[in-house]
Amino acid sequence: MQHQVKLELMDTHAGGDVSRIVTGGIMRLPGTSVRQQMEFLRDQADGLRRLLLEEPYGIPEMSVDLIVPASHPDADWGYIIMEVMGYPIYSGSNTICTATALLESGLIKKQEGVQTFTLEAPAGLVQIEARIQDGVVEAITCEGLPSYIHTYKASIEVPGIGPVTYSIAYSGGFYALVEAAELGFVLEASEERALADTAHAIVEAITAETEFEHYALGNVGPLPFLHFMGPVLQLSDTTYRSRSATYVHPGVICRSTTGTGTSARLALMQYEGLIEPGDSLETVSLRDTRFVGTYTGLANKQGQDVVENRITGRSFVLNRAEVIANEDDAMLSPEVVQSLRVLSTQRT
């Protein structure tokens, strides 16, 4: 008898980055918080992430978001983010996609005009503002995590490249921030492969020399992100624009500029005294898709000055699907099959 696992998905994208939203077929996970549920997936059932991001079902450039019941009484739903690098505790583009999927699936009922609700990420509660016109989700604004500069203008010798100047920001994950022009890039789509190769070498070099600790979370793992920064253009007294590209280790250049990448840029601009509360930065990707980050204020958390911010973008639904995984498919590793047996509520 053939044993199958069925998962209900809604594929979405924000700025070109595809997020596969798992809306059904997975059991309720153990844990008293979304963070604990994420840790269970990471440590006990990583096969779900691998199934949907690896051949033949997906590619590493995608992300996966599992919708789960919220554990916090103030949250409407929870969600767990899965990417090629593992399990980030927060992501702006994934949050925009998940919020859109919840509205489009009816799990959160749409309301015309500006609608607000709360989600629970592994990082904690996230306030969402959705702009809806004629039943269409036209924009999602979500809170970025409090962001800050950990290291400013350090230098490292990178094999095959030479000396590289970088800063380190935290915005939901640690980011190396580098000036694209100093490395010979203008941030066009034709440079994507070279950007990925360059970023890989820089991240490997930094990781070999340095570990980074968050002021509250401690060691959150090796450096996962690098953000290439284009020149900043001032459009008005309060608005700026910059071409940008975000790299996820290992090997992926995001289609969008990413929400956390945009938050990291805001942290650097604030650190350098270039923006004031209320100012916004529009980041523009290799594919000319855009997110807008707004600097809302400076706070002090446990002795660390942090930049509070919001990210605005738009997500589109690509398809609704039922994924069927056959347990005797040779393309599925034993680890993936075991994870699916543990997690699935729909097996035949």
Rank of each mutant, 00 (worst) to 15 (best):
G173H: 03
I89N: 00
L187S: 07
T262G: 01
V186S: 13
T141Q: 15
T118S: 11
T12D: 09
Q37D: 11
G15C: 01
P231K: 14
S315R: 04
T100W: 07
R341L: 12
Y152V: 09
G172Q: 01
I149T: 05
C254H: 11
V220P: 12
L53Q: 00
G86S: 03
L298K: 09
V336M: 13
S236T: 14
A176D: 00
V306K: 00
L266T: 02
V306L: 06
V284C: 07
N300L: 07
L52R: 05
L103C: 06
Y170E: 15
Y215N: 12
G78S: 07
E112C: 06
F316K: 04
S285V: 01
F40R: 01
S256P: 00
E83M: 14
I149M: 10
V158K: 08
N300V: 10
T348Y: 14
P60K: 04
T289D: 15
S333T: 11
Y170D: 14
T345E: 14
S147Y: 04
I140S: 05
Y152Q: 12
Y170V: 08
I21M: 02
M229Y: 08
Y240H: 02
T345F: 07
A194D: 15
D76N: 11
E209M: 14
D305N: 09
G221E: 07
V306G: 04
G218Y: 01
S285D: 11
T116H: 13
F185P: 00
E182A: 15
P159V: 03
V164R: 05
T345P: 06
A216T: 15
T165A: 12
Y166Q: 01
Q302C: 13
D329Q: 08
Q37W: 04
L177T: 02
Y148N: 09
Y166V: 00
G135L: 02
G106R: 06
A330Y: 05
A205Q: 05
R49T: 01
Q302P: 04
I253V: 09
V284S: 09
R193A: 14
A169G: 00
R42L: 06
V342I: 14
R49A: 09
I67C: 01
L235Y: 10
I140T: 12
D305H: 09
T345M: 10
N309G: 09
F228Q: 07
E143Y: 07
